[in-house]
Write a protein that binds this DNA or RNA. Structure first.
Lengths: 112, 112
DNA sequence: CTTATTACTAACCTTTTGGTTAGTTAACTT
DNA sequence: AAGTTAACTAACCAAAAGGTTAGTAATAAG
């Protein structure tokens, strides 16, 4: 019997899905942006005013990335001055409660 | 009536808790490490073999950070060669199911 | 004619994160 | 005497993430 007695029995899990999760929620601003859009359509300038700490460049960059990921969608109206609205996709609205629940993880580690 | 009709009504949430959540789960390796430790105590070398893609330096660095955050705890036995074991803290075991559920967010965005 | 408005882009820089390689310690085995 | 083992540390580097500042386009308002 050469079976090692205490050999590691690692957890197996879906790497691809986990990576996708991290893509969606990690980064300094992603979750804030998603939370602020919430259930309404928000104009770019509106989001800037709601999250004034983020730089313009990064906000646009993150909005683009979230569109790419299928988390939000962008609608441009052909007006001048421009009007662009961002809203959560159906998929995101579906898991939105999960996203709001994320704070509970941190809460568990706040008070000694 | 000067109340703007469509003024942004942002979501309010616990910033501190959210930040703590992100501290715990973000980073290329943190969740993998937490998952691999799971419910058992794991030696450093064991973890290295379970996650061979991570560099030695980063693994140690992340273990240290997770200890700091109160996510894992470290026990050193005074032996030579050294023996050091890492395990999840009670707090972490408590929310471990939440952590395992994180993949479900990503899963929602995998298939079109 | 000038200014304001909105949603951007471009160039550049700093900080953070992750990676590579080599060295250390102290006892045990050969 | 030399090599092995485990869990590190130190010095250095590259890539990614985030930030600053300035500029643009099209129209309307003053």
């Amino acid at each position: 019997m050469n079976e090692p007695i205490n050999a590691p029995k690692p957890h197996f899990f879906n790497h691809t899905a986990l990576k996708k999760t991290l893509d969606i929620i990690c980064g300094k601003w992603r979750l804030y942006i998603i939370y602020q859009i919430g259930t309404e359509a928000r104009r770019y300038g509106e989001l800037r005013r709601m999250i004034p700490e983020v730089s313009e460049k990064v906000l646009i960059q993150e909005l683009k990335a979230l569109v790419e990921l299928g988390v939000i969608e962008k609608k441009s109206y052909n007006e001048v001055p421009p009007r662009v609205e961002y809203s959560l996709t159906a998929k995101t609205l579906h898991i939105f409660p999960h996203l709001l629940e994320l704070t509970s993880i941190g809460e568990a580690f706040l008070n000694p």
